[in-house]
């Protein structure tokens, strides 16, 4: 979460709003911000920290661990039409990779703007594919893994 917060300027430049959620109360969020996060992230975590007490939001997003009573690590990208474009769910021991989050957002934004599709590992500026009859069986000519 703090790792996403330190990339917030980059996310904001892409027009992205971030919302963080855990089952902790808003009061605990405030003290975590004051006691620890503000020392990891300059100015503190700049986006809203939501309280999913009881885990009902986590339940509908498939990340609520009933035995532990907490939301596990889950990250969702939602587009301007309110459609979920991507989800990544990890058990808690492994943290996320904000580079991959930002890469996926750029790819989904490119797809939305152009109608092209982006091959595996695509980065801005790299070759994209234009799906259609002409491309069938010819992907190898324009793109190699």
């Amino acid at each position: 979460m703090a790792a996403v917060a330190v990339r917030y300027e980059e996310l904001k430049a892409l027009g992205v709003e971030v919302l963080a959620l855990s089952t902790d109360s808003r009061f605990v969020h405030k003290i975590w911000q004051e006691q620890e996060l503000s020392k990891m992230v300059s100015g503190g975590v700049p986006f809203p920290m939501l309280s999913d007490a009881g885990g009902k939001i986590g339940m509908v997003y498939g990340v609520y661990d009933e035995a532990a009573g907490v939301d596990i690590r889950g990250r969702f990208i939602i587009d301007p039409d309110f459609i979920i474009r991507a989800m990544e769910v990890l058990t808690p021991e492994v943290g996320r990779n904000p580079d991959e989050l930002i890469r996926q957002i750029k790819a989904f934004q490119h797809v939305r703007a152009t109608g092209e599709v982006t091959p595996s590992g695509w980065q801005p500026g790299q070759v994209t594919l234009k799906p259609g009859p002409a491309l069938v069986g010819k992907v190898w000519e324009v793109w190699k893994p």
Partner: peptide
């Protein structure tokens, strides 16, 4: 409210708890 952000790109980040380690 999530739908107040309709029309923008949104990232939701769920995490296990404040003051945890990763």
């Amino acid at each position: 409210k999530l739908s107040d952000y309709k029309g923008k790109w949104i990232v939701l980040c769920f995490y296990p708890g404040d003051f945890t380690f990763v």
